[in-house]
Design a binder for these strands. Structure first.
Lengths: 248, 248
DNA sequence: CGTACGCTTGAAAAATGTCAAAGGACGTGG
DNA sequence: CCACGTCCTTTGACATTTTTCAAGCGTACG
């Protein structure tokens, strides 16, 4: 299978699906033109690594399509996912030489990349980029803190429900609907990846998914295809007080 | 006791103890002068709230001296600390009307504040501020992700050792020493606050502190004064592979 | 057809939480 | 200076949750 996805090899920024959410969102036509000159696309197959923690990182970029994960691993192999990267999310840190986390494509993935040096120079010359990146980073920080509450204080059942709610919400946003009433979506993660995200074992994830199914909070067709008959019920199970939460 | 600490009511920026680490770190003399015109100091006694989640927030600012915490609370009272704010750390989010977390002074606290509106205007006019804030926010995001690993995957004992290591490291940095060999410091948190930070109960915290004491990883004088005879041993107990970690 | 992979389920073990009691430090007022 | 009360902490016994280890199921794919 080709590493390059022809559809994106010469994408125009103006037609880009993440034009208004990514790090370039605030750029005007002129600024976009400059970005266009230094950008390039990379594609990864599902399961492939994008970068390993500690590796030199000479590019930064945005997820255009697909999903990637950010994970940390301890010496003895314990793993914790610390980020789920969706279209428009930014990868890499300007000013840092090497990657701090493992980045892996969990679905087929297309990234819009910039070599780090030119991008950093453009950041200094183009405040709109830094402003947008700040905004996105603050959003990610909020999401990380929301996740800290989940990891530190929620029960296994609440964790599963929370993850399903986040995925459902994002999926609804992608379809430009508000998450109300009945929802149907596909899980982008295996049970093991869910476990790594939630700080659980895959067995506990499996058991709690079964329990939510038994209690009619969700129903499943196959292992990935989820139906949520009542989104509010799911939110109750998640233990979230504010339903207008942050996206990941 | 007076709410205002006279020492800081009319501090010159050039003499400020956090001048080179706070959000103003990159500002030149001219920019600093403008900031100086819109700043004001606020003091809080230990235990006082700085702001409640959901409250309107009409200022942002930096911790000058003392320690504050950021916490989230669930409807049923479960609490998770999501940030420990040390001198130079920034509080508040430009562009957001209300606070997302409870902020509490755990020690006597002095903050250097700016009304939100003028600060936001200055951010647009003064790239150095936004640049520094981006850098600080990226650091916080890294710290949050490090904490996600702790919350999701570490044992109670490792959690305690990690927290002690972080505090020891910060304390050493404050005294301009590198954390090596034997260290002595004071815990700025109660057992309950430690529990809220670590996603544990206060009883488990107490038991694990006792266990580390029994195993000579630390020794205590009173409940707060800690001696670490061997910092590397503490790091082993923390399960950290990389000892050159991030500060909180 | 068989193998591999992801998933589910059960039983037992381990870690952590809950409830309860009591010890110790510290500040206040007598 | 002492007595008292409050708050923080420790410890024990027991309950609960989650993990660990093990076995088996189902589907996709060679």
């Amino acid at each position: 299978m080709a590493v390059h996805d022809a559809q994106f090899v010469h994408q125009e920024c103006s037609d880009c699906p993440i034009r208004h959410r990514a790090v370039c969102a605030r750029c005007d036509a002129d600024e976009l033109g400059k970005l266009e000159q230094i950008k390039f696309y990379r594609s990864y197959q599902a399961g492939q690594p994008v970068i390993w923690s500690g590796d030199r990182m000479d590019f930064v970029g945005s997820v255009v399509t697909g999903i990637a994960t950010l994970t940390q691993t301890m010496e003895d192999g314990r793993r914790q996912m610390v980020g789920l990267l969706l279209p428009s999310d930014f990868v890499g840190r300007p000013g840092r030489a090497s990657a701090a986390y493992d980045v892996t494509a969990t679905t087929d993935l297309v990234m819009c990349c910039f070599r780090k040096k030119p991008f950093e120079e453009m950041m200094l010359a183009t405040p709109h980029i830094g402003q947008r990146l700040l905004e996105m980073t603050l959003d990610e920080l909020d999401a990380a803190r929301e996740w800290m509450l989940l990891l530190g204080r929620k029960t296994a059942r609440e964790k599963i429900a929370s993850l399903l709610a986040i995925i459902a919400r994002r999926d609804a946003a992608l379809k430009l609907r508000s998450p109300k009433g009945a929802l149907v979506f596909d899980l982008p993660l295996t049970r093991e990846e869910m476990a790594d995200y939630l700080g659980l074992t895959l067995e506990t994830v499996s058991r709690q998914v079964s329990a939510l199914k038994r209690d009619d909070v969700i129903s499943l067709e196959g292992n990935r295809h989820v139906t949520v008959p009542d989104f509010d019920r799911l939110l109750e199970e998640a233990g979230d007080d504010n339903d207008g939460g942050y996206l990941v």
